[in-house]
Amino acid sequence: MVKWSADLRAGGRWAVTVREADGRELPANGEFLDIEVPRRIVQTRLYAWDHPTLGRRQTTVAWLLEPTAAGTRLTICHGGFAGLAEAAAEHAEGWGRVLGWLQAYLGAGSRVAA
């Protein structure tokens, strides 16, 4: 991730640019649809490039945070893949990778289920 900006409020915009190992930059952006502090964030997501399995279809990501005895449970629901099974599988794999990075960052005591 080489760029990130967010206006973290309902109706606010966000943008990110990811740089791949070959130097290619892949921007994405969207809007925050709902923010219910501290439990939920819902946002749209749209690639500003032609994703190989999704194209430029807008999707929706919901981040759900639930207190537990050991900390916080994070559930990510990423929808908008109707009729695009390959894109859904690819994004599920990507979320698994991202959650693995989060687990590594937080330390071995954390649990991540993708």
Rank of each mutant, 00 (worst) to 15 (best):
M1D: 00
M1P: 02
V2R: 08
K3R: 13
W4M: 10
W4T: 10
S5M: 14
L8E: 05
R9S: 08
A10Q: 05
R13Q: 13
W14H: 02
T17L: 00
R19W: 00
E20Q: 07
D22L: 15
R24C: 00
E25T: 05
E25D: 00
L26C: 03
L26Q: 03
L26I: 06
P27D: 08
P27V: 01
A28F: 06
N29W: 02
G30I: 05
E31T: 10
E31N: 00
E31G: 03
F32G: 05
I35C: 02
I35M: 09
E36T: 09
E36V: 09
R39E: 05
R39W: 08
V42K: 01
Q43V: 07
T44S: 13
L46M: 11
A48P: 00
D50W: 01
D50L: 03
H51P: 03
P52W: 05
P52G: 10
T53A: 10
T53K: 05
T53Q: 08
L54W: 12
G55S: 15
R56W: 02
R56G: 02
R57A: 15
Q58F: 06
Q58S: 05
Q58Y: 01
T59Q: 00
T59C: 04
T59V: 06
T60N: 04
V61S: 04
A62M: 06
W63G: 02
L65H: 02
P67M: 07
P67I: 10
A69M: 14
A70V: 07
A70R: 08
G71L: 07
T72I: 06
T72F: 05
L74M: 13
L74Y: 07
L74D: 08
T75C: 07
I76W: 02
C77Q: 13
F81S: 03
F81M: 04
G83V: 09
G83R: 09
L84A: 13
L84F: 07
L84S: 10
E86K: 12
A87D: 11
A88M: 12
A89W: 12
A89Y: 08
E90V: 13
E90I: 09
E90Y: 09
A92K: 15
A92V: 12
E93F: 14
E93H: 14
W95F: 12
W95V: 04
G96Y: 11
G96I: 09
G96T: 14
L99R: 11
L99W: 12
G100S: 13
W101A: 07
L102S: 08
Q103G: 14
A104F: 11
Y105T: 06
L106C: 02
L106P: 01
G107C: 08
G107K: 09
G109L: 10
R111H: 10
V112D: 05
V112F: 11
A113S: 14
A114E: 01
A114Q: 03
